[in-house]
Structure formats: structure tokens, C-alpha cells
Simulated scan of single mutants.
Amino acid sequence: MADVARLAGVSIATVSHVLNGTRTVRPQTRDLVLDAVRAADYTPNTVAQALATARTTTIGLALPAISNPFLGELIHAIEAESARRGYTLLLVDPHEDPEYEHTVVRRLHARRVDGVLFAPSAEPGAALSFLTAQGIPTVLVDRLIDERMDQVGSENIEAVAGLVAHVAGAGHRRIALVAGQPGLQTTVERVAGYRLGLARAGLSDELLVDGRSAEEPARVAVHALLAREHPPTAVITANNSMTIGAMQALREAGVSVPGDMALACFDDFPWADLFAPRLTVVAQPFAEIGREAVRLLLRRMAEPDAPPRTVRLPPRFVHRDSCGC
């Protein structure tokens, strides 16, 4: 940094202000410093910066199933917004395991991340207690379980109720839901939306099966639905991985969509418009969720005592062919 200051003809403090954004610097001076940084091929020592400022400019993201390609848009949005704000992302997968979830948030803290974006498991008590006890700025993402914390995700109940209303409006009376992993807040809300949709349509028969939020369990669950004495005429899947499993089961059973079975899905994915038939879905606003999560976290870092905010963003209904309407 002293070399950069000499090259630019400014003080070390000015170089620090330019690189860290801690004070406004005249544009001409800022250009001199940046030219000197390039000439010296200077790279800031982040370890030294962290020691001096107690900040590492890193954000921890604890998100289950990061290998799921359908979550790519969410991760990309979080990474892009973090980078735009000068932060680096540390990404970990808790694997929906409460004990390991506790371990990974402790590891993120050991890395001295400045804050954590966290999609909690069905039993997140230990991890949440640790984050709270350590005073780590935290935003819950996707699974909104505690209004005492900042959190952002999709609206689930009315979205699923709308899918039920849509297929019921086409004359279906036996409508099934392939639900996600029990205990997850998104599962709880989407099941509530399913029941609300049935009630509004004057339907009482629940055809509710557990797809465990994954392809293979959903495939097995749909086969079980088809084996019933009175199988459904319409199936709603509660996430995109389960949609794939449901489609596999329907194909294996020789059931045509939408001729024999209407299909509607929670979550869109890039090739949903390329299937035959094209899939009718509720598309989550993953990009907006990711950007808002970072904004909420940076606000929490800057204003530790600010009142918590819960942000629910509306999904978008995309009407295609698989519902048979």
C-alpha cells in the first residue's frame, strides 16, 4: 500500500479510503490511486484487512442441495449481488441434516464471515441458537420460520391454492399433491395451500403423498397414487425435483399428460417449456429472492438493532399445456 501511495503521490490513508470505500475521494485522486494499483500489480491482503477492520468481506451461504441445478438462478443472483457490493461468497451444503447444519454454520463463523444467508432444515434449532448467541447477522432464505429474524422467500400458500383452483376449474375433482420433505416450512405452507384450494373448490378428498422433495421418492409416490382404486386425474408437484420424478412415473405407467392426467408444478426450470407437453408451473422469483437476501443482510450488518423484516415475493403463474386446459 505504501508503494501505491508513492506511485500515486498521495497518502497511505487515501489509498486505503479508495480501496475500502471508507471515505469519499475526489474522482481525479481516485483515478491516480487506481492507476498506481494497476502499475504496482497490487493485491490487498484480505487477512491483514480482516485483522485491522474485523471484517472479511465474505458472506456465508448455507443452502441445502447446492448440487441441484434448479437452484442455480438463486445462487447466481446471491453471488452476483454479493460481488457487486464487494463481498465474496462461501457456499456450504448442510444436506438437510440438523447436526451437520450446526457444524457448517460453526465453520462459517470460524472463517469469520461477516454474515450468513441460511435456508434452515426441518429441525434448525441448534444452528439458529448458535447464530443468535454469536450475534452473527443472518437472513433466512426460502424457508421463513421466524419473524424475529430477517427472512425472504416466495409466497407459497396462495400460489399452490391457485394451482388447485386452475385444475379444478378444468373439471378435475381428484387432485393429488406430491408434497416435499415433512417439517420443512415450504412443505407446511404448500400443503396448507393445497388444502385451501380444495376447500375453495368444494372438494374434500385429499390425495396427499410424500415426495421427500426429491426425484426418486416422488417417482415412487406417484406410482402409489396410480395404484389406488380411485387414482387422481390431476397431480400437482411441490418442487421441480419432484416434478421430474412424477414425470418418470407417469411415463413408466403409460399415462399420457395431459390426456390421461393433468400435471401442474411448483417451480419452473429452463427446459420446462421444451417438454412435450410443456409444463404449467408456478415460477418462483429466484433472482429477486437472491438479490433481496443480500440487501437484507447488508442492512442487518449496518444496522444491527433495526427491526426484522419478512419479505414474501409473489410467484408467477405460467400457463402451458400439461394442465390440459
Results as ranks from 00 to 15, higher is better:
9 G>C: 07
137 P>N: 02
307 P>V: 10
35 D>C: 05
3 D>W: 00
274 L>T: 14
282 V>Y: 07
49 Q>E: 11
263 L>C: 00
200 R>G: 14
232 P>Q: 11
17 H>N: 12
56 T>P: 07
185 Q>W: 11
273 D>A: 15
84 R>E: 13
287 A>W: 03
101 E>N: 14
196 L>P: 07
268 D>V: 06
79 E>W: 06
161 A>Q: 10
257 V>F: 08
86 G>S: 02
206 E>D: 11
124 P>Q: 09
253 A>Y: 11
171 G>A: 09
146 D>F: 12
164 V>Q: 05
120 P>R: 10
212 R>L: 11
132 T>V: 14
247 M>W: 12
170 A>L: 15
270 P>L: 13
68 N>F: 05
236 I>A: 01
239 N>K: 04
302 A>Y: 06
220 V>P: 00
259 G>L: 08
25 V>H: 03
73 E>N: 12
262 A>E: 01
140 L>A: 06
36 A>C: 02
58 T>C: 07
175 I>L: 00
178 V>H: 05
104 V>E: 02
102 H>D: 15
42 Y>I: 09
190 R>E: 07
305 D>K: 13
194 Y>I: 10
74 L>D: 05
309 R>V: 14
163 L>D: 09
82 S>Q: 04
24 T>P: 11
121 S>P: 04
189 E>L: 15
320 R>H: 10
33 V>H: 07
41 D>G: 14
71 L>H: 13
320 R>Y: 11
63 L>Q: 09
316 R>D: 13
189 E>K: 12
103 T>Y: 07
3 D>I: 09
151 Q>L: 02
244 I>G: 02
127 A>S: 09
291 R>A: 14
213 S>V: 01
58 T>N: 12
289 I>A: 07
180 G>Q: 03
122 A>S: 15
23 R>T: 11
235 V>A: 00
19 L>S: 02
102 H>E: 13
93 D>P: 08
106 R>I: 04
214 A>L: 14
92 V>W: 06
98 P>A: 01
196 L>H: 08
23 R>V: 04
253 A>R: 09
135 G>W: 00
172 H>S: 09
312 R>P: 08
114 D>G: 12
208 L>E: 06
159 A>Q: 10
182 P>D: 13
188 V>I: 15
164 V>R: 14
68 N>A: 03
269 F>P: 03
20 N>D: 10
215 E>W: 00
294 V>C: 07
310 T>D: 08
207 L>A: 06
145 I>M: 12
231 P>C: 01
172 H>R: 08
224 A>K: 01
165 A>C: 11
144 L>C: 01
311 V>E: 11
47 V>Y: 14
62 A>K: 05
93 D>Q: 11
295 R>Y: 01
72 G>N: 15
